[in-house]
Amino acid sequence: MSLKYSVGDLTIHRVIEQESPFFPALEFIPGLTAEVLAENRAWMRHAKALDDADTLILCFQSYVVKTPHHTILIDSCIGNDKSRPQRPKWHMKTDDTYMRALGAAGVSVEDIDFVMCTHLHVDHVGWNTRMENGRWVPTFPKARYVFAKQEFDYWTEQNAKAEVPPFADSVLPVVEAGRHELVGNDHQIGDHVRIVPTPGHTPGHVAFAMGRGKDDAVFTGDLIHSPLQTLYPELSMKFDVDQAIAAKTRRNVLERYCDTDTLCCTAHFPSPSVGRIKRKGNAFVCESV
Protein backbone atom coordinates (compact mmCIF):
# COMPACT_ATOMS: atom_id res chain seq x y z
CA MET A 1 0.00 0.00 0.00
CA SER A 2 1.45 3.33 -1.06
CA LEU A 3 1.50 6.17 1.43
CA LYS A 4 3.59 8.48 -0.77
CA TYR A 5 2.86 10.00 -4.18
CA SER A 6 4.79 12.38 -6.41
CA VAL A 7 3.07 14.46 -9.07
CA GLY A 8 4.46 17.58 -10.77
CA ASP A 9 6.65 19.21 -8.13
CA LEU A 10 4.46 18.02 -5.25
CA THR A 11 5.22 15.21 -2.82
CA ILE A 12 2.14 13.87 -1.04
CA HIS A 13 2.08 11.68 2.07
CA ARG A 14 -0.96 9.98 3.59
CA VAL A 15 -1.06 10.12 7.39
CA ILE A 16 -3.58 7.51 8.56
CA GLU A 17 -5.12 7.63 12.02
CA GLN A 18 -7.82 4.96 11.65
CA GLU A 19 -9.23 2.71 8.95
CA SER A 20 -12.11 0.43 9.85
CA PRO A 21 -15.79 -0.40 9.34
CA PHE A 22 -17.69 2.74 10.28
CA PHE A 23 -21.39 2.84 9.42
CA PRO A 24 -23.97 0.49 7.83
CA ALA A 25 -24.10 1.43 4.15
CA LEU A 26 -27.90 1.68 3.96
CA GLU A 27 -27.95 4.00 6.97
CA PHE A 28 -24.97 6.13 5.97
CA ILE A 29 -26.33 6.78 2.47
CA PRO A 30 -30.10 7.27 2.89
CA GLY A 31 -30.82 7.19 -0.86
CA LEU A 32 -29.09 3.83 -1.30
CA THR A 33 -31.47 0.92 -1.88
CA ALA A 34 -30.91 -2.71 -0.97
CA GLU A 35 -31.08 -3.53 -4.70
CA VAL A 36 -28.34 -1.08 -5.69
CA LEU A 37 -26.21 -2.26 -2.78
CA ALA A 38 -26.65 -5.88 -3.91
CA GLU A 39 -25.58 -4.97 -7.47
CA ASN A 40 -22.38 -3.36 -6.18
CA ARG A 41 -21.57 -5.57 -3.22
CA ALA A 42 -18.97 -7.75 -4.96
CA TRP A 43 -16.69 -5.00 -6.26
CA MET A 44 -17.15 -2.93 -3.08
CA ARG A 45 -15.97 -5.86 -0.96
CA HIS A 46 -13.10 -6.54 -3.36
CA ALA A 47 -12.09 -2.86 -3.00
CA LYS A 48 -12.24 -3.27 0.81
CA ALA A 49 -14.86 -0.49 0.88
CA LEU A 50 -17.54 -2.76 2.40
CA ASP A 51 -17.30 -5.51 4.98
CA ASP A 52 -19.24 -8.78 5.22
CA ALA A 53 -21.95 -7.09 7.30
CA ASP A 54 -22.52 -4.39 4.63
CA THR A 55 -20.79 -1.77 6.75
CA LEU A 56 -18.83 0.88 4.86
CA ILE A 57 -15.10 0.85 5.55
CA LEU A 58 -13.70 4.37 5.83
CA CYS A 59 -10.21 5.73 6.28
CA PHE A 60 -9.57 8.72 8.55
CA GLN A 61 -6.41 10.49 7.48
CA SER A 62 -4.54 13.70 6.79
CA TYR A 63 -2.42 14.54 3.80
CA VAL A 64 0.98 16.19 4.07
CA VAL A 65 1.91 18.01 0.87
CA LYS A 66 5.36 19.36 0.17
CA THR A 67 5.49 22.08 -2.48
CA PRO A 68 8.81 23.70 -3.46
CA HIS A 69 8.06 26.39 -0.86
CA HIS A 70 5.89 24.98 1.93
CA THR A 71 4.91 21.91 3.92
CA ILE A 72 1.12 21.80 4.21
CA LEU A 73 -1.12 19.57 6.32
CA ILE A 74 -4.62 19.04 4.95
CA ASP A 75 -7.29 18.16 7.55
CA SER A 76 -6.02 17.15 10.96
CA CYS A 77 -8.10 14.05 11.62
CA ILE A 78 -9.49 12.90 14.99
CA GLY A 79 -7.03 13.86 17.71
CA ASN A 80 -6.26 12.69 21.24
CA ASP A 81 -7.86 13.49 24.60
CA LYS A 82 -11.03 14.82 22.96
CA SER A 83 -14.42 14.12 24.54
CA ARG A 84 -16.41 12.36 21.80
CA PRO A 85 -18.87 10.11 23.68
CA GLN A 86 -20.98 9.45 20.57
CA ARG A 87 -17.96 7.83 18.88
CA PRO A 88 -16.30 5.30 21.22
CA LYS A 89 -13.31 4.82 18.86
CA TRP A 90 -12.62 8.57 19.00
CA HIS A 91 -13.49 9.26 22.64
CA MET A 92 -10.60 10.34 24.91
CA LYS A 93 -8.12 8.61 22.62
CA THR A 94 -4.51 8.43 23.83
CA ASP A 95 -2.71 6.40 21.14
CA ASP A 96 0.40 7.47 19.22
CA THR A 97 -0.80 6.24 15.80
CA TYR A 98 -1.11 9.66 14.21
CA MET A 99 2.17 11.05 15.48
CA ARG A 100 3.99 7.89 14.41
CA ALA A 101 2.43 8.18 10.93
CA LEU A 102 3.51 11.82 10.75
CA GLY A 103 7.03 10.80 11.71
CA ALA A 104 7.01 8.03 9.10
CA ALA A 105 6.26 10.74 6.50
CA GLY A 106 9.48 12.44 7.64
CA VAL A 107 7.65 15.37 9.22
CA SER A 108 7.56 16.81 12.74
CA VAL A 109 4.90 19.16 14.10
CA GLU A 110 7.39 22.05 13.80
CA ASP A 111 7.80 21.42 10.05
CA ILE A 112 4.22 22.30 9.11
CA ASP A 113 3.84 25.77 7.55
CA PHE A 114 0.08 25.65 6.96
CA VAL A 115 -2.78 23.56 8.30
CA MET A 116 -5.68 23.74 5.82
CA CYS A 117 -9.14 22.51 6.79
CA THR A 118 -11.63 21.51 4.09
CA HIS A 119 -14.33 22.01 6.75
CA LEU A 120 -14.63 22.02 10.52
CA HIS A 121 -16.16 18.63 11.33
CA VAL A 122 -14.90 16.59 14.26
CA ASP A 123 -12.72 14.17 12.23
CA HIS A 124 -11.04 16.94 10.22
CA VAL A 125 -9.88 19.27 13.02
CA GLY A 126 -8.94 16.95 15.91
CA TRP A 127 -5.17 17.35 15.79
CA ASN A 128 -5.44 21.13 15.30
CA THR A 129 -4.86 21.21 19.05
CA ARG A 130 -3.40 19.03 21.77
CA MET A 131 -3.66 19.06 25.53
CA GLU A 132 -0.72 20.69 27.29
CA ASN A 133 -0.73 21.48 31.01
CA GLY A 134 -4.51 21.27 31.14
CA ARG A 135 -5.24 23.52 28.17
CA TRP A 136 -5.65 23.19 24.42
CA VAL A 137 -2.76 24.58 22.39
CA PRO A 138 -2.05 24.46 18.63
CA THR A 139 -0.38 21.15 17.79
CA PHE A 140 1.62 22.69 14.94
CA PRO A 141 3.29 25.66 16.65
CA LYS A 142 4.72 27.40 13.58
CA ALA A 143 1.76 26.83 11.26
CA ARG A 144 -0.87 29.25 10.04
CA TYR A 145 -4.25 27.53 10.20
CA VAL A 146 -6.39 28.31 7.15
CA PHE A 147 -10.17 28.26 7.61
CA ALA A 148 -12.70 29.20 4.92
CA LYS A 149 -14.53 32.24 6.30
CA GLN A 150 -17.97 30.98 5.30
CA GLU A 151 -17.33 27.69 7.10
CA PHE A 152 -15.93 29.43 10.19
CA ASP A 153 -18.87 31.84 10.34
CA TYR A 154 -21.36 28.97 10.09
CA TRP A 155 -19.84 27.11 13.04
CA THR A 156 -19.42 30.30 15.06
CA GLU A 157 -23.18 30.77 14.72
CA GLN A 158 -23.92 27.12 15.63
CA ASN A 159 -21.57 27.27 18.61
CA ALA A 160 -23.32 30.41 19.90
CA LYS A 161 -26.60 28.46 20.09
CA ALA A 162 -25.11 25.40 21.81
CA GLU A 163 -21.48 24.42 22.25
CA VAL A 164 -20.07 22.42 19.34
CA PRO A 165 -17.28 20.44 21.07
CA PRO A 166 -14.86 20.10 18.11
CA PHE A 167 -15.20 23.81 17.39
CA ALA A 168 -14.63 24.67 21.06
CA ASP A 169 -11.63 22.39 21.61
CA SER A 170 -10.02 22.22 18.16
CA VAL A 171 -10.74 25.54 16.42
CA LEU A 172 -11.28 28.32 18.98
CA PRO A 173 -7.97 27.65 20.82
CA VAL A 174 -6.16 28.21 17.49
CA VAL A 175 -8.00 31.52 17.11
CA GLU A 176 -7.15 32.50 20.69
CA ALA A 177 -3.49 31.75 19.95
CA GLY A 178 -3.64 34.07 16.93
CA ARG A 179 -2.55 31.32 14.53
CA HIS A 180 -5.55 31.35 12.15
CA GLU A 181 -6.39 32.98 8.83
CA LEU A 182 -9.98 33.34 7.60
CA VAL A 183 -9.96 33.27 3.82
CA GLY A 184 -12.33 33.69 0.90
CA ASN A 185 -12.71 31.33 -2.04
CA ASP A 186 -10.17 33.34 -4.07
CA HIS A 187 -7.40 32.61 -1.55
CA GLN A 188 -4.12 31.20 -2.86
CA ILE A 189 -0.84 30.22 -1.24
CA GLY A 190 2.00 31.06 -3.60
CA ASP A 191 1.51 29.67 -7.08
CA HIS A 192 0.72 26.15 -5.85
CA VAL A 193 -2.43 26.17 -3.69
CA ARG A 194 -5.95 27.19 -4.63
CA ILE A 195 -9.39 26.82 -3.08
CA VAL A 196 -12.21 25.00 -4.90
CA PRO A 197 -15.61 25.86 -3.33
CA THR A 198 -17.51 22.57 -2.74
CA PRO A 199 -20.64 23.37 -0.69
CA GLY A 200 -23.17 20.77 0.39
CA HIS A 201 -21.59 18.64 3.08
CA THR A 202 -21.32 21.88 5.06
CA PRO A 203 -22.21 25.37 3.80
CA GLY A 204 -18.58 26.50 3.49
CA HIS A 205 -16.91 23.20 2.59
CA VAL A 206 -13.94 23.59 0.23
CA ALA A 207 -11.55 21.34 -1.63
CA PHE A 208 -7.91 22.28 -2.28
CA ALA A 209 -6.28 22.13 -5.70
CA MET A 210 -2.50 22.05 -5.80
CA GLY A 211 0.14 22.32 -8.50
CA ARG A 212 2.00 25.06 -10.32
CA GLY A 213 -0.33 26.53 -12.92
CA LYS A 214 -2.48 23.39 -13.10
CA ASP A 215 -4.25 21.03 -10.75
CA ASP A 216 -1.75 18.22 -10.23
CA ALA A 217 -3.76 17.06 -7.20
CA VAL A 218 -7.10 17.83 -5.61
CA PHE A 219 -7.94 17.12 -1.96
CA THR A 220 -11.66 16.49 -1.76
CA GLY A 221 -12.40 16.46 1.97
CA ASP A 222 -15.98 15.28 2.53
CA LEU A 223 -17.20 16.07 -0.95
CA ILE A 224 -17.29 12.28 -1.31
CA HIS A 225 -17.00 9.46 1.24
CA SER A 226 -17.21 6.13 -0.58
CA PRO A 227 -16.21 4.81 -4.02
CA LEU A 228 -19.90 3.97 -4.45
CA GLN A 229 -20.58 7.70 -4.80
CA THR A 230 -18.32 8.00 -7.86
CA LEU A 231 -20.61 5.52 -9.60
CA TYR A 232 -23.73 7.15 -8.12
CA PRO A 233 -22.87 10.85 -7.59
CA GLU A 234 -26.50 11.56 -6.75
CA LEU A 235 -26.21 9.51 -3.54
CA SER A 236 -25.49 11.86 -0.65
CA MET A 237 -24.64 10.80 2.89
CA LYS A 238 -26.73 11.38 6.00
CA PHE A 239 -24.51 14.10 7.49
CA ASP A 240 -24.58 16.35 4.39
CA VAL A 241 -26.27 19.55 5.54
CA ASP A 242 -27.78 19.98 2.03
CA GLN A 243 -27.92 16.64 0.24
CA ALA A 244 -29.14 18.08 -3.09
CA ILE A 245 -26.35 20.68 -3.27
CA ALA A 246 -23.81 18.04 -2.17
CA ALA A 247 -24.89 15.76 -5.03
CA LYS A 248 -24.68 18.57 -7.59
CA THR A 249 -21.27 19.67 -6.30
CA ARG A 250 -19.98 16.09 -6.37
CA ARG A 251 -20.97 15.56 -10.00
CA ASN A 252 -19.49 18.93 -11.01
CA VAL A 253 -16.13 18.16 -9.38
CA LEU A 254 -15.99 14.61 -10.76
CA GLU A 255 -16.79 16.05 -14.22
CA ARG A 256 -14.10 18.71 -13.82
CA TYR A 257 -11.35 16.18 -13.07
CA CYS A 258 -12.62 13.28 -15.16
CA ASP A 259 -10.08 11.86 -17.66
CA THR A 260 -7.38 14.32 -16.56
CA ASP A 261 -4.02 13.61 -14.93
CA THR A 262 -5.14 15.21 -11.65
CA LEU A 263 -4.63 12.97 -8.62
CA CYS A 264 -7.84 12.78 -6.60
CA CYS A 265 -6.89 12.50 -2.92
CA THR A 266 -9.98 11.51 -0.95
CA ALA A 267 -10.35 11.85 2.79
CA HIS A 268 -12.28 8.65 3.48
CA PHE A 269 -11.97 6.12 0.66
CA PRO A 270 -10.34 2.93 1.94
CA SER A 271 -6.66 2.54 1.11
CA PRO A 272 -5.09 3.47 -1.22
CA SER A 273 -7.57 6.42 -1.14
CA VAL A 274 -5.85 8.15 -4.09
CA GLY A 275 -6.70 7.73 -7.75
CA ARG A 276 -7.66 9.34 -11.02
CA ILE A 277 -11.25 9.96 -12.05
CA LYS A 278 -12.35 8.10 -15.19
CA ARG A 279 -15.69 8.22 -16.97
CA LYS A 280 -17.96 5.19 -16.79
CA GLY A 281 -21.20 5.65 -18.70
CA ASN A 282 -23.02 8.60 -17.15
CA ALA A 283 -20.92 8.28 -14.00
CA PHE A 284 -17.34 7.82 -12.88
CA VAL A 285 -14.82 5.54 -11.22
CA CYS A 286 -11.73 6.42 -9.22
CA GLU A 287 -8.89 4.28 -10.56
CA SER A 288 -6.17 3.69 -7.99
CA VAL A 289 -2.65 4.69 -8.90
Rank of each mutant, 00 (worst) to 15 (best):
E255V: 00
D81W: 03
I12M: 12
L223M: 15
T118P: 05
T129K: 14
R14E: 12
M44N: 01
N185W: 09
D95L: 00
P227A: 05
S170F: 02
F114M: 06
T249N: 10
E39Y: 11
G200Q: 00
I29L: 02
E287G: 08
T33A: 05
L56W: 05
P199L: 06
Q158Y: 03
V218A: 00
A143K: 10
K278M: 14
F22M: 12
P138V: 04
L231M: 12
H201D: 07
M210F: 07
C258T: 04
T266D: 09
I195R: 09
Y63V: 09
Q188L: 08
L10N: 03
K238S: 12
K48P: 05
D169F: 03
T67G: 08
Q18N: 13
F269C: 01
E176Q: 15
V137S: 03
E17I: 01
L228E: 07
L231F: 04
Q188C: 06
C264F: 15
E17N: 00
R179G: 00
Y232W: 13
D111F: 05
R41N: 14
V15L: 02
M99P: 02
V107W: 04
P197T: 13
F60R: 03
P272G: 09
P68Q: 01
K142Y: 10
P203A: 01
S20H: 15
G134I: 00
H69Y: 01
P203F: 06
A34N: 09
L231P: 03
K142L: 13
H225Q: 15
I74L: 15
A207D: 01
T260P: 11
N185L: 07
V122R: 01
A177V: 00
W127Y: 14
A53I: 08
L228T: 05
S108A: 08
I74N: 02
Q61I: 03
G200W: 08
K82C: 01
W90A: 13
V137P: 11
E234P: 09
S170M: 00
T220M: 08
V285H: 05
K89Y: 04
V146N: 13
Y98K: 02
S20L: 15
K82D: 10
T266S: 05
S170E: 14
V109R: 10
E255G: 04
V171W: 09
L231V: 02
Y154W: 13
S108Q: 13
I224D: 08
T266G: 07
H201Q: 07
L50C: 08
L56D: 02
V175W: 02
M99A: 13
T129P: 12
Q158K: 09
F22T: 12
G281L: 00
F269Y: 12
A143N: 00
K278I: 11
R256I: 06
Q150I: 09
L235N: 03
Y63L: 01
F219R: 10
S273C: 10
C117N: 15
T230Q: 10
W90M: 12
K280A: 11
L172V: 14
R130D: 07
V174E: 08
V137C: 11
I12H: 13
H69G: 06
T249R: 09
